[in-house]
């Protein structure tokens, strides 16, 4: 991100934080979930830049969410920061372990194997009576370093927490994209042989991306668990992964901010469609996805770039 880009992002962040004072609750809660999901999308963008599409990101999302719920239930810990870190770490650890396997795969084989792994978790959770099987179970309201807000206060605290996490994640991932490890994503997609003969291990590069995306998805799942107040096996079903992929396509891999813009657009679209045309929600989704792939292969983010380019071309 160029300097003016960072300033713009910082201003947008402040604006979003301040908006909590004026916007109605339902918008705040929609934005909380949207930004939590945006973290998962950010992880998918990390993978996508290297040409990898994971149809199983719900695995890490669900692990993050269940880790929060389970640890909370077993130990009585309610601290949001601690639980969130536990959720992220659990998912990151799983990503690290399955990464040894997944890093060997590319293209649709990668997509299918990640899907299979997430479906394994789904299969386990659905049959696990002690975890509430298909119904899942509730998550206790989080506290923030001992501060235990209720209702609107809780809503706002959670919203700010999610905003802060997203801002930190966006900043770090932006730096990662410029690092040797992160910036080699496109080279890896283009030509693995050359990367190997430059002396870099492609599978290690990909493994790193897997762990990063797993961490992000786990944190997203943990925050979503707080926001929804409930976890259930559908969080790991393949349609959940499909939704994340959908948002990623919608956002484009252009910049870290696009993950959150895309996610917000998606959640808004969803609540609009649920209110106006509940029977046509999936049709709407499918059509948008189709049109995006056909006409905006770089995602919604590319619209901005195109406009800027046009303006530049128009300038003397």
């Amino acid at each position: 991100m160029a300097r003016h880009g960072r300033i713009a992002a910082g201003a947008a962040l402040l604006l979003a934080a301040a908006a909590a004072f004026v916007l109605p609750d339902w918008i705040i809660s929609l934005a909380t979930i949207a930004f939590a999901n945006g973290l998962v999308v950010l992880g998918l963008i990390v993978l996508w830049r290297a040409g990898l599409v994971s149809f199983g990101q719900a695995l890490y999302y669900c692990i993050g969410a269940y880790a929060v719920a389970l640890v909370g239930r077993a130990t009585g810990v309610t601290d949001a920061f601690l639980l969130m870190l536990i959720g992220g770490a659990a998912a990151g650890l799983v990503a690290f372990v399955v990464g040894f396997l997944l890093a060997r795969y590319r293209e649709i084989f990668f997509a299918m194997l990640s899907l299979a792994l997430s479906m394994i978790l789904y299969g386990v959770l659905v049959k696990a009576e002690s975890l509430g099987s298909t119904d899942g179970f509730s998550v206790a309201s989080p506290t923030f370093f001992g501060y235990a807000p209720h209702q609107e206060k809780l809503l706002m605290a959670l919203y700010w927490l999610v905003l802060a996490v997203c801002a930190i994640a966006a900043f770090l991932i932006d730096a990662y994209f410029r690092s040797v490890s992160g910036a080699l994503a496109m080279p890896v997609r283009d030509n693995e042989i050359r990367v190997e003969f430059l002396g870099m291990s492609v599978s290690r590069l990909i493994h790193t991306k897997l762990v990063i995306s797993g961490l992000l998805a786990g944190m997203g799942g943990a925050l979503a668990a707080f926001a929804i107040g409930h976890v259930d096996p559908n969080m790991s079903y393949w349609t959940t992964s499909g939704e994340f992929v959908f948002i990623t396509i919608l956002s484009g891999a252009g910049s870290v901010v696009s993950a959150f813009v895309g996610s917000l657009a998606f959640e808004s679209l969803r609540s609009f469609a649920f209110a106006m045309l509940p029977q046509l929600w999936q049709m709407l989704l499918g059509s948008v996805l189709l049109l995006t792939i056909l006409f905006l292969p770089q995602g919604l983010g590319s619209l901005v770039t195109r406009l800027r380019w046009r303006r530049k071309a128009a300038a003397p």
Binding site: V53, G242, Q279, Q282, M283, S287, L289, L294
Partner: peptide, 26 residues
């Protein structure tokens, strides 16, 4: 429209078709 594109892109296109057709059923 998408023959010759990435295999992954074609998966996504069929996924879009799948979503649309789900509601056509309804």
């Amino acid at each position: 429209l998408v023959y010759g594109r990435d295999e992954v892109v074609m998966v996504l296109v069929t996924y879009a078709a799948f979503l649309i057709l789900e509601d056509v059923v309804i």
